[in-house]
Nucleic acid binder design. Structure first.
Lengths: 135, 135
DNA sequence: TCGTAGTTTAGACATAGTCTAAGTTTGTCG
DNA sequence: CGACAAACTTAGACTATGTCTAAACTACGA
């Protein structure tokens, strides 16, 4: 955990304001996977002068500057998939379109040997762009 | 595509109402990955007597009865992860808690050979229960 | 026909996230 | 220092997604 968060932010091209430092101190080193509102709650306990909009702005900024990763499958929505057999998913980065990838196209090993977890199901989620002609 | 949707629903223990049939006809055989409101829009075009609540109820019922799968990483929210190196994720089915799984714990092959896709990044998403003592 | 369980409905409510317009802070340059 | 501009923060309005409720409707067996 760095002593100097301001320096860390500056290195990424982010102006280190008090609010951003408070958010950074919590979110950059947590082991939890907090939602934006959870971040807001945590940081407000330390730094009460902090609006919700700033937390959202700051988190999005951190994601853009590669300090954080956003974990989400589709673009903020729950989607439904009628294909009940196991399969993988590919998400087109430009369009957000989700495509099914057949189970056998990819092989994954050592899942069942994972220590500490009973894995009931799994899938590979890929992101990138489609190389199709017709689209 | 089955001729008799009513029979299909009854086999799963679902009373086949007109609304449920209309939803089933669209959602069980689409290649899209529609959100709930997209389903509503599509089905309402065919069957205008259909409320939003019924669509949500029906979709959730179909998921419970294993006709559909819900594609979502965390429980409907975007969460943030400060770990920027590639890694996988395990989601505890009971608590919804997300844990990081080291990249080397699992091996995935043939991703880069996928026809038609430029995969820029990928991860394995697992679901199940944690077998830890302390929790 | 009646009663009941199951289903559907509109709309209120809740939560997640974005946007805006105004106010505050910060950095720069004379 | 002083003032200006750019960057940042704010409250609250707004949109979208999803849940809940109470009332109305429907199907169906006794």
């Amino acid at each position: 955990m760095p002593a100097d968060f301001a320096k860390l932010l500056r290195e990424k091209g982010i102006q280190p304001s008090a609010q951003r430092l408070a958010v950074a101190e919590y979110v950059l080193f947590t082991k939890e996977h907090p939602s934006a509102d959870q971040v807001w709650a945590k940081v407000r306990a330390v730094c009460p002068v902090l609006s919700r909009a700033t937390v959202y702005n700051t988190l999005n900024l951190f994601v853009k500057k590669k300090l954080l990763r956003e974990l989400v499958l589709s673009e903020g929505k729950v989607v439904f998939d009628p294909k009940m057999e196991a399969h993988h998913h590919f998400i087109d980065e430009h369009t957000g379109r989700i495509e099914d990838v057949p189970w056998n196209a990819i092989s994954v090993s050592r899942v069942s040997g994972l220590k500490g977890y009973d894995v009931r199901e799994y899938m590979v989620v890929m992101r990138g762009r489609t190389r199709r002609k017709s689209c």
